[in-house]
Amino acid sequence: MPPKTKNNDKSKHNEECDTGDRSSDTEMISILRELLVQQEKNFKLIQTTLFNSVKEATGIQISSLEKDVYSLHSRIDALEGKKSELEKKLSNSDTKVAVLENQLGKALEEIDELETYIRRPCLIVNNLSPEHGKTDEDLFVKLCNDKMININMSAEKISKIHRLHRSNNSETDQSKPLALVVKFAKDRYRDEVFKNKKSLKGTRIVISELLTKRRSALLKKCVDKFPGDRTMRSIWTDNGKILVKCGEGRALQVKSENDIDQIIQENFSQALSITDH
């Protein structure tokens, strides 16, 4: 029976060992579970702390950004208000400029009319060469009496006479004699000479009215822009007025460049079409 006793003792010993091992495993598992629970709590605590920190920091930044945005909106509103005011002022300025330009245009026209009136008693003589020992007055009186029909000119009929200064324009012929300006004592003496200027045809001498710079430039534009030759149109001046005539039509006055374009469109388009055919 002894062997049987030994086996029983071994079995009991093995059972005790197994029981001890299970007990130690259970404790280990329990410890691990506690550690896991603690770790989970720590993780949640850290997560909560980070979230609150981020939230707080983000909240401060958002608040700051909101203030900046509000400030920018206020500035934009202020700029829009200033822009509206400037646009109104600009509109008023444009209106004032238009009014001033209109007034300036009228003032220039009035000045031009006044200057034309002052120049009314004068004529300008081109290509009358000076002669040694003779005054310009002597030369002009001789020209009128020798070359013009029914003209009895004398020094008493002349108020002033002088040569113009030569222009610095490079296109001007420097060999030509200086133009001679004659101011007559009375308008009728001036008119007699001007009406008989055609008597000088065939000579180099040309007599014309003493126009203002504005009207001289406008007359040149008429000559340059009106189509055709002298058989189609006539351009001349009368007491400072610039007149143009198309064919057998009536004389039309040119006061501005706009008049030139309008007269060409209304009176010369038909003549041009006939010439083209």
Score class of each variant (00 low, 15 high):
M1Q: 07
P2S: 09
P3T: 10
K4H: 11
N7D: 01
D9S: 11
E15F: 05
E15P: 00
S24W: 13
I29C: 08
L32N: 03
L32V: 05
R33I: 11
E34N: 09
L35S: 01
Q38D: 08
Q38K: 06
E40R: 15
K41Q: 07
K44D: 13
K44S: 11
L45A: 04
L45M: 08
I46R: 13
T49P: 00
N52D: 03
K55L: 14
K55R: 09
E56I: 03
A57C: 02
T58R: 02
G59T: 03
G59I: 05
I62S: 06
S64Q: 05
L65F: 11
E66A: 01
V69E: 09
S71M: 01
L72T: 09
L72C: 10
S74P: 00
L79G: 02
L79C: 02
K82G: 02
K83L: 13
K83T: 05
E85H: 10
E85Y: 08
L86Q: 06
K89E: 10
K89N: 06
L90Y: 13
L90M: 12
N92Q: 12
D94T: 09
T95C: 06
L100E: 10
G105L: 08
K106R: 15
A107Y: 12
L108K: 15
L108D: 09
I111W: 14
I111C: 06
E113F: 01
Y117I: 07
I118E: 14
P121S: 11
N126T: 15
K134A: 06
T135E: 10
T135Y: 12
D136Y: 06
D136V: 11
D138L: 04
L139A: 15
N150S: 11
N150R: 06
I151D: 09
S154D: 13
E156Y: 07
E156R: 14
K157R: 14
K157D: 04
I161N: 09
I161Y: 15
R163Q: 05
L164C: 10
H165C: 11
R166A: 15
R166Q: 14
N168L: 02
S170P: 07
E171F: 02
T172Y: 14
T172R: 05
K183R: 15
K183P: 02
A185W: 03
D187W: 07
R188L: 03
R190N: 06
R190M: 05
D191N: 04
V193C: 01
F194A: 02
K195P: 00
K197Y: 01
L200M: 07
K201H: 07
I205D: 08
I207M: 04
S208R: 15
L210D: 00
L210V: 00
L211E: 00
T212G: 06
K213C: 02
K213S: 09
R214P: 00
L219C: 03
L219R: 04
L219Q: 05
K221E: 09
C222D: 10
D224W: 11
T231H: 08
M232A: 03
S234K: 12
V244I: 06
C246H: 10
L252G: 12
E257D: 14
N258I: 13
N258T: 10
N258Y: 11
I260K: 15
D261K: 15
Q262P: 00
Q262V: 11
I263Q: 12
I264C: 08
E266W: 03
F268L: 10
Q270N: 05
A271E: 12
L272Q: 12
S273L: 14
S273G: 00
T275Q: 13
D276W: 08
H277L: 09
